[in-house]
Amino acid sequence: MTPDYYELLGVKKSASAEEIRSAYKRLLRQAHPDTGGTSGLFIVIEQAWETLSDPARRASYDKERSRPGQSSSGSGSSDSAPSNHSDDFTRGYAEEAGRSRFREEQAQREREEARQRQYEHDRAAARERARQKKQYASEAARTERLRPYYDAVRKLSEKEKQLHFLGNVRLTYVLALHRAESSQYVVIFVIAALIALNAAFMIMGTATLTGFSYWFALVFNMVVIFLGSGVILVFVSAALLWLAKVAAPRRRNVSDTELQDEYLSAQSNG
């Protein structure tokens, strides 16, 4: 059945082209989706305008509507009530408009939910970036503060690192052992040389040799005494260092942070 475009536009069947144009523009503003209307209503009003604005199509439409079984009146007829078909059209149009509005409202809700999810996602990402930035800054500051500690640890041998980390011995104590072990051979050389020189002159002071024999004997005695005293001093020094390591004040349940803070505190106080 053909819909009643006159009833849809709210004009009489005998309405002029200007009246139809005015009714079309008024309804078009109301039915446009951007002003709160629906796409279904908008399309139907466009169809009504396209039909009634063209004289040839309007005449064909009026002829179709005047056939038996079609309503020739409605709100656009001044002498009869709307037909059953007009009621069906109005009811169908209302249902379509309701479905259209429901779909648009649902789409609007989905867009709002998507915007809200994106907003929450952006906020969470911003918080995570701020947290990471703060963490990186804190780690960088701590690394810079601990630089003297790390520089000192790098000087230690593997056994000395084990004494510090596994035995929880203070780093200042381990560094003292490290310095003593590093300089022991220089000290031993100097002491052995002094002993050898002093002892050789004491021995040669009582000798009756002269000339080349005297100097040969002096050098020989110095070498022998130097080597002998050096060997003895090496063993003594090694024994003392071993005893110092064995007697090192080992502790339990001391964290790396506490070891680091101990050394930095000793450095600042020293």
Rank of each mutant, 00 (worst) to 15 (best):
D122G: 02
S39R: 14
R26W: 04
S77T: 08
A17Q: 13
A31V: 03
R29D: 13
K12N: 07
E120C: 00
A81Y: 09
E64L: 15
D87H: 08
R127N: 06
D88P: 00
G98N: 13
E18Q: 14
A81T: 07
L28Q: 13
S14Q: 11
H121F: 08
S83C: 08
A48Y: 01
E105A: 10
Q108V: 05
S75D: 05
A81C: 02
E112H: 07
A81H: 05
L52E: 02
R99T: 07
R21S: 13
Q108Y: 05
L52D: 02
A23G: 04
G98S: 13
L27C: 00
E46R: 13
D34P: 00
K134Q: 14
A126Y: 02
G98T: 12
S78W: 09
S39Q: 09
R91L: 12
Y61F: 10
L52G: 01
V44T: 08
T38S: 13
S60T: 09
D34G: 10
G40F: 11
Q106E: 14
A97M: 15
A15K: 06
S86C: 11
L28N: 10
E64Y: 07
Y136W: 10
R21V: 03
E112S: 05
R109V: 02
R131K: 12
E50L: 14
R91G: 02
A59I: 09
A31T: 10
S39P: 03
K133A: 15
